[in-house]
Amino acid sequence: MPAFSLEPVRTAWGAQLRALAADRLRPLAEKGEPGHVNRPLVAELGRLGLLARLFTSGAVDLCLMRESLAYGCTEAETALALQGLGAHPVHAHGTPAQRERWLPRVADGTAVAAFALSEPGAGSDAAALSLRAQPGEGPDRAAHEGPAASLDAEPDGPARWRLTGEKCWISNAPEADFYTVFARTTPGAGARGVTAFLVPADRPGLTGTPLDMLSPHPIGSLDFDAVPVTADDVLGEADRGFRVAMNTLNLFRPSVGAFAVGMAQAALDATLDHTARRNAFDGTLRDLQTVAHRVAEMALRTEAARLMVYAAATAYDERTPDVPRRAAMAKLLATETAQYVVDAAVQLHGARALRRGHLLEHLYREVRAPRIYEGASEVQRGIIAKELYASLEDR
């Protein structure tokens, strides 16, 4: 890590995390079943104290954790990140009762969290959510739906709303233990009419379906059939849930960039080693100017992305007003950079990099999704432009 952006103690911690990822987390990741939550891996993250740090560290340390873990074990990085994404709204906006019930279990790895924002018709345009939170108690579902909808799963007190609709592309669904769910409480109000709810997975009327995705962790859809929620399930304030979502994304977007930087660095290091040793054309690959220049470009872009990621994280920790712009820039540059670096690494390795189980084959599959989730690259460009023109009007 560059000394001018991270203090020596953080640099040393990053090295420790890389070693942990390789020695203790990678073996657990390899035993996991693709498309399912790797609960032993999540539990190990808890035992190592890394999940607890999600609630005690700032954005810089979150980025350092994600970059370092991604370098050695992308599955561990993703497991940690999804715990943070799903539980951060509870940590930042939850009631004391909500935090007391769920955060210790997230921290020790015994409860799996999920962030349920996207819908079939509202992915990039998060303000267009259509999952309905309809007022009124509605029927007593537990009385006629059998043992799966037990009274124990009902919320405390009468339901103030019933959630009806669908969520889609939700990481950790349908295997999470609770979901941070964003639903429309005021029709026609756009972003101002959305409320965030903490919804345990055993609520009656909540079911899920796994989706067969290019991902080692589960991604699924959630169906809400008049799922009961009360005022005690609200995160923050009613009709102010869009702010909960955006505050969470402003924190996690730079850290998605850190995840990307970790993958880019792993690909770059593998390429340096390969091109220095691979014999070709009466020398090594490094002796070919086209190869050397490509490697230089990979290093240049990776370092530029890293600097932007930590600049955005520092801005978040210091509560500067330009956080949305910086967060969008960091995610955009880092994820696009990682795509370029990993692709270039595959090209310089040749056919061996396409063999199942090769590091670069793994990274090639992993690197594509971050350009889409938590706001696609096109969305980030829109945010950047919007923030730039807003600052112009404020002058």
Rank of each mutant, 00 (worst) to 15 (best):
A369F: 13
G84L: 01
A113K: 00
Y389C: 10
H217K: 08
R355H: 12
E119P: 06
L392K: 11
D223E: 12
A327C: 06
A280S: 13
Q265D: 05
R243L: 08
D233C: 05
R240E: 10
R278T: 14
V379S: 06
A126D: 04
C73N: 15
V295L: 14
G262H: 06
T271H: 14
T290D: 15
E336V: 08
T335S: 09
A267T: 03
R141Q: 10
P104S: 08
D152I: 12
A114E: 11
A81D: 05
F224D: 00
V194S: 02
A345G: 15
A12Y: 07
A87W: 02
L41A: 04
T74Q: 05
P96V: 09
L62P: 00
A114S: 14
T207G: 03
A52K: 14
A143P: 07
T314L: 07
Q83M: 14
L235T: 04
D394K: 14
E7I: 06
E67W: 10
L206T: 07
R18E: 08
R53H: 09
P370A: 00
A81Y: 13
V261F: 12
I170K: 04
D287S: 11
H362T: 10
S124K: 03
A70E: 09
W13Y: 15
A312S: 08
R352Q: 03
R381T: 14
D233W: 00
R160C: 03
E119L: 07
A258L: 07
P27N: 15
Q98M: 03
L163I: 07
E119G: 02
R395L: 13
R53I: 04
L348N: 02
S130G: 09
D108N: 14
P218V: 07
G236A: 04
R160F: 01
C63Y: 01
A126Q: 07
A107R: 05
C73V: 05
E166D: 12
L392R: 09
V379R: 08
R277M: 02
D108K: 13
L28I: 03
V181I: 08
T290L: 15
A128Y: 02
W13D: 10
R368H: 12
R278Y: 03
R355C: 04
M308H: 07
C73Q: 05
G46P: 05
S171Q: 06
R352V: 14
M65Q: 13
A266P: 03
T11S: 14
H274Q: 10
S57A: 14
